[in-house]
């Protein structure tokens, strides 16, 4: 589904990613860990199509075709979703309106009929229940006045509503209280399917207790320094990252 080949990425003349290789198949859940500043969000953003990063070499294939020259919306329509590490506030743009516009853009692209307000409300109520969010959040502007944890739940709500094929979750588990963490994990498990893949970027082993990760990767200095199973996360928890430095 996702194939990253020897990816090199620069930001403002600084090399951030220095040869990433990663293959994700449908049904898999990959976790990416690594120190602050190691390039995890850069990788997520490059996959989502953030244009301020410069790909100097390498390629990203999605379902076999290169997407590096595609716009962020083209990628989203094709089924790629990124949960933002720092979800953006969009003043004055109503959350319902935003989510309905996004969903209908995707449905239209898929050749499905667009949902009207009533149909959308029915759908969104089900999704709200999964992440235990109150309907009042729908009436606010996108992420406006949301607490850190509420913003993260809102990202999961969007994922559940838009039903992408590939979800990149950038620290969606950071800043959550214990209950919220369980809710987010439940949301991810609810979303999980054999034909969908998840890449979760995290600093903590605790989310992986709720999610069964097929692979854990460690990003060090712009490269994947080590890959393994869930026990790699446990090892990191114990020993820190320094044992992988060389």
């Amino acid at each position: 589904m996702l194939e990253i080949k020897d990816l090199h990425v620069k930001v403002e003349d600084k090399d951030i990613l220095k040869g990433i290789n990663l293959t994700v198949h449908p049904g898999e859940l990959h976790a990416i860990m690594g120190r602050n500043g190691s390039g995890k969000s850069t990788l997520a953003n490059v996959i989502a199509g953030q244009e301020s990063y410069e790909i100097t070499s390498g390629d990203i294939l999605y379902n076999g075709t290169s997407i590096i020259s595609e716009s962020p919306e083209e990628r989203a329509l094709a089924g790629i979703f990124m949960s933002f590490q720092y979800p953006v506030i969009i003043p004055g743009v109503n959350n319902t309106y935003f989510l309905k516009a996004a969903l209908n853009a995707i449905r239209k692209h898929q050749g499905k009929t667009e949902l009207d307000a009533v149909e959308f409300l029915k759908l969104i109520r089900k999704k709200l229940a999964v992440v235990e969010m109150d309907e009042k959040y729908l009436h606010r502007a996108v992420n406006d006045g949301f607490s850190g944890g509420e913003k993260k739940k809102n990202e999961i709500l969007q994922m559940l509503t838009l039903e992408p094929a590939l979800a990149i979750l950038d620290e969606t588990d950071s800043g959550l209280d214990i209950d919220a963490l369980k809710i987010v994990a439940a949301g991810v498990n609810n979303y999980r399917r054999d034909d969908r893949a998840i890449v979760i970027i995290t600093h903590y082993q605790r989310i992986l207790k709720y999610l069964e990760a097929d692979y854990v990767h460690v990003l060090i200095n712009g490269k994947i320094a080590k890959s393994g199973g869930e026990n790699l996360a446990e090892q990191l928890e114990e020993k820190g990252y320094s044992w992988l430095d060389n």
Binding site: Q50, Y97, A102, L162
Partner: peptide, 17 residues
Amino acid sequence: FYMRSRGIDVRTAQLLL
């Protein structure tokens, strides 16, 4: 970018903003 990453085209995203 946030809106585009959800499938909303640039023009619509600008007008919404």
